[in-house]
Design a protein around this nucleic acid. Structure first.
Lengths: 234, 234
DNA sequence: AAAACACTAAAGTCTACACAAAATGGAATC
DNA sequence: GATTCCATTTTGTGTAGACTTTAGTGTTTT
């Protein structure tokens, strides 16, 4: 049957279901009709209903279990998606001119805390890179990163004077797992100097650990310049 | 054909595609074979390939355009999903005992900055609620919230002495749009007092604006206690 | 009672096919 | 040379039907 003449699409179903939840017609914790019945109601196939409900479950509105059916989540476990762009893109998106500057790059044995954090073997070798990202002449981000040499042997030959370690890594090694945190920290002397802030100032900070199939690849701490906010809409 | 005997599922296809991207077989920016050809290769239907590629595009690995085809995103525009639980759930998830305390609740005309922020009409009435969320006896979050009376008339009768404004709102009014930001701010005298921190200390801060069909519903500022970090894995 | 078992309802996934919609690239026209 | 228009390709979405997997529920056995 062609869908040009008045059919119900999975998007329509999503909207209707959401509306019913919002209107209170379908109370939290209550069970929805099964797919078959909904298909009949919307005069479409179960496939279409399935897609609608599956996506709503994905978005955190519904909970689905085989045999048990589909129920409305009581506390809509909403989730926010933040896009994590590369610094260059983030700067350019705001109209700024991106500039990168290497501060230091050296091969060292991993410090204790890093060995613990990444579950490294004692005395594994790392490349420690510190660098700055600017938007025009304004400091945008100070990055402090360690790369595990055993996981990324090529890093020994890498030259970080022109390209940032993040961009280099993305081009060079894949990763499978990431742990990402955000917090507020106080600017120590170093961070304050590079971000051009008074010492002790609050700094929005990101911490990122990346693995490839269980192997720790890199640990990065990213200190954002004054006034930075991470925003999303949904 | 039954799928018990060796068929390719959309999950298999996702894995294979990801593996090819990671291995470099399919370079960033390059075009993938079209769905028909992939279906032939995996000996399944186009529907199955479609689902696999659609989900990968959703997850930020691929870009798909009709007629243009499917290509590997050069900078895998990865996105992090943070779940935004209600404070009670967040506290209880860490094993703490949740406790709520109202600080103040009063009806006032919206201040200038809020009128501007939410695009209110001049002198619209709001309910201003300030409250604390504890984990055991440790301050977990100080919340400072305005609720627009015109959008939520019931708020005039609400009693926030036992239930937090957020939980109340979720039960009472639906919302359609949210803008959520995170930043690092310095604790002013009030925030410092409630969170039991020295004044000027960095505070991880969330700001949330909620609309219902274009109508501003509420503005909330959430100050998190010492050591808070927002974490996700992917 | 408690444990093991079978039945069955519901979601999960796949096949096979069809038509819809977008957008690219080239052809026709100005 | 630029613009408009159109055919074609590729993804998007729907139908119809089948088999699979999970997990409640009720029954039987211990």
């Amino acid at each position: 049957m062609p869908q040009s003449t008045e059919t119900t699409s999975y998007k329509d179903i999503k909207k209707t279901v959401l509306a019913r939840i919002r209107s209170g017609e379908w109370q939290p914790d209550s069970l929805l009709p099964n797919e078959q019945d909904l298909a009949a109601e919307f005069s479409c196939t179960r496939t279409t209903v399935n897609r609608a409900l599956r996506e709503l479950a994905d978005e955190g509105y519904l909970e689905r279990r085989r045999k048990a059916g589909t129920r409305v989540l009581s506390a809509p476990q909403r989730q926010a998606r933040f896009s994590i762009p590369m610094v260059r893109d983030e700067v350019e998106a705001t109209g700024g001119t991106y500039r990168y500057a290497l501060v230091s790059a050296e091969t060292t044995v991993a410090p204790d805390w890093l060995t613990a954090r990444l579950a490294l073997r004692p005395d594994q070798s790392t490349v420690h890179v510190r660098c700055m990202h600017f938007s025009g002449n304004t400091p945008f981000q100070y990055e402090d990163r360690w790369i595990v040499v055993d996981s990324v042997p090529q890093v020994a030959q890498a030259d970080f004077s022109a390209i940032g370690p993040n961009e280099w890594l993305i081009q060079t090694v894949p990763f499978t797992n990431v742990e990402l945190s955000f917090l507020a920290s106080r600017a120590d002397a170093t961070v304050a100097r590079f971000l051009d802030l008074p010492e002790g100032e609050p700094v929005f900070t990101g911490e990122r650990i990346t693995w490839l199939e269980g192997q720790p690849v890199t640990y990065a701490k990213m200190y954002f310049g004054a006034g930075y906010r991470m925003t999303t809409q949904f």
